[in-house]
């Protein structure tokens, strides 16, 4: 096969439409053809967008199974990276928050599904909210900022620029008090705060909620405990502040 013919295989290669022999021939060609290498990278990124658009929540048992297997599976050795020699693996951060988010979200969706027609409008709103949460959590560009909450538990803000939205995920949060509420804030570099909504955690201390309003120039998301109904500006010391604009 001539080089000109091989060039034309970049698309079929990017979507895995070559048979085993053709795939091997094209991969040999890629080693010496930077043009095709660049094109394949772009076309694979395009195919990845088609793939990501199919996102579907996998069963929770799959997560447990994958994580259990990973614990007993060795990794490949790093190639030629002297900086990693003797480095102890990082195991510091302990965050199961996104797992909690997925579980809470799944629960919310089941709740919505079984709610029935009587609560149709509430149901539609919750579905929209769950869909928004889900699209942020699965966005390719989503970033995660996490920290310990001063009054107990952990809080994570997941932000997606492409979705233009953020989601707060909390776990192990303490009950704020009968006449109190948690309130989220967008904080910009000058320190001024705008409310991003209030919430009360579930009885197990978990919460997954989209942030209200737009991040605009916010560099930090903060969390305070406020009187029920929320405040126009923070009235207490923040229990959590995480950076959201790297």
């Amino acid at each position: 096969m001539s080089d000109a013919d091989l060039h034309l295989l970049s698309g079929a290669y990017a979507v895995d439409a070559l048979d085993v022999d053709e795939r091997a021939a094209f991969e040999r060609h890629l080693e010496t053809c930077p043009t095709c290498t660049d094109e394949v990278r772009e076309l694979r990124a395009t195919a990845a967008v088609l793939g990501a658009a199919e996102a579907t929540t996998p069963p929770a048992r799959l997560r447990e199974s994958v994580l259990a297997q990973v614990r007993t599976t060795p990794q490949q050795l790093r190639e030629q990276d002297p900086s990693s020699a003797g480095v102890v693996p990082l195991r510091a951060r302990s965050s199961r928050l996104l797992a909690v988010a997925a579980a809470v979200l799944a629960f919310a969706l089941v709740g919505v599904a079984t709610w029935g027609i009587a609560a149709h409008q509430t149901s539609a709103r919750l579905t929209a909210q769950a869909a928004q949460v889900s699209s942020v959590l699965t966005a390719a560009d989503a970033t995660t900022s996490t920290g310990a909450v001063g009054t107990g538990g952990r809080g994570t803000v997941v932000t997606s620029a492409s979705q233009g939205a953020s989601v707060f995920v909390g776990s192990g949060l303490s009950e704020p008090g009968a006449d109190k509420t948690y309130q989220l804030w967008y904080i910009d570099a000058s320190g001024s705060a705008r409310s991003a909504g209030t919430f009360r955690p579930a009885s197990d201390g978990s919460v997954v909620t989209p942030l209200e309003g737009e991040p605009r120039t916010a560099t930090t998301v903060g969390l305070t405990v406020e009187p029920a109904g929320g405040s126009a500006a923070p009235t207490t010391t923040p229990v959590l502040a995480v950076s959201v604009n790297a």
Partner: peptide, 25 residues
């Protein structure tokens, strides 16, 4: 890549819906 299994959990949570959805499609 440095063996951080907590990071792997986060990576799983972020990527599993897309992987599972694509594979199932």
């Amino acid at each position: 890549a440095h063996g951080d299994d907590t990071a792997f959990e986060q990576l799983y949570d972020r990527m599993a819906p897309a992987v599972f959805g694509l594979v199932k499609r």
